[in-house]
Nucleic acid binder design. Structure first.
Lengths: 193, 193
DNA sequence: GTCTATATTCCGATAGAC
DNA sequence: GTCTATCGGAATATAGAC
């Protein structure tokens, strides 16, 4: 991948965070990247090509910040690791904002666009299973089906809270607090089973 | 409001459910409503005017089906009433689908559009307070702040589950089951406080 | 109030020079 | 590889008759 392409993809991530997937205009992208529109069509086949590669680009970035951990390690308890993982998606940084906006757009677009659904389902499954595994470490004696259900709820809630945060309904600190409360509530629920 | 306007707004709700807010084309709306495009510009100032009034229209409709209850009444327990209220938004009917799609679109659009945020915040607040009140009937001795937090989580989760349902990630019955589980978990959480 | 044109604007995409 | 210039289609919006 040429550095020009990377430059354009970084600009695309910013434009998508500002205007949404469906609000991205090639001309605005060109201005943001400081290049001509023609150059974008030279490096990417068409507007859809830009979108696909940008979503991929953003996804890679998200995996990176999700897994980067511990320069020198104070080992986390399972509960801390679970909360950490969930709360990583609720931070007011440029990167998380861009990724969450793009994820929300992807989810919302998929409602009206069959083509996106498969990618979305796959990514969601991975995410749910990761959370279920972490829950299993906190509550070792709970059946897998109950863990899976709790994980689905926590991740769905995370998406809901992200949207409220991004759409200005709640502040980020409040979102984080609510998320921690949900973990507590779910763990209380699992305990009773 | 003239019956023509109503007819156009009903058509707009259907088109939005099919294509999304940002996918609504005035020409397609005209065809769906069985009128000319010019008539739409006559009744509504412009495309944005159509959108604003349609969102309002959909909001009113949602309140109607949320509050319609009990032809002859077997009185519900507080818990039943709570679950009923939440599960009303997770039904595979044309009306709920249209309203949920439009709501999701409104939420997603608001991320990139300041203008929509105020309406959204107001509607969300009403909704959260309603759920908090119902929770208070199930758990009378719990402080209001804890009830409010639980209500915010349940409604945010509902939005998250709706999106997964509408985007094909989960089936409606599974969504309902998860929602019931969340109510149980939240009540367990409130019990411990 | 409603329709049939049609004007206007916007935007994705390409041609061709350098 | 990159730009300037422009085309062509699609969508919003309006003019004017009925």
């Amino acid at each position: 991948m040429s550095s020009r392409s990377t430059q354009i993809l970084e600009a695309a991530a910013r434009v998508i965070a500002r205007r949404g997937v469906r609000g991205l205009r090639v001309e605005e992208l060109a201005a943001e990247a400081g290049v001509s529109t023609a150059l974008i069509y030279y490096h990417f086949k068409d507007r859809t090509g830009v979108l696909r590669q940008t979503l991929e680009f953003i996804n890679d970035r998200a995996e990176r910040y999700t897994t980067d951990r511990d320069p020198d390690d104070p080992p986390l308890t399972p509960l801390e690791e679970l909360e950490e993982t969930l709360l990583l998606e609720l931070q007011d940084t440029v990167e998380v904002r861009e990724n969450s906006s793009a994820w929300g757009e992807l989810r919302a677009s998929a409602v009206f666009d069959e083509v996106l659904r498969e990618d979305l389902a796959r990514a969601t499954l991975v995410w749910v299973q990761e959370v279920a595994a972490l829950l299993g470490q906190v509550r070792p004696m709970v059946p897998a089906s109950a863990l899976a259900a709790a994980a689905e709820r926590l991740t769905a809630l995370l998406e809901g809270l992200s949207m409220r945060w991004l759409s200005g309904g709640i502040k980020i600190d409040h979102a984080r607090e609510l998320m921690r409360g949900a973990v507590d509530a779910e763990l209380a629920g699992l305990e009773r089973a």
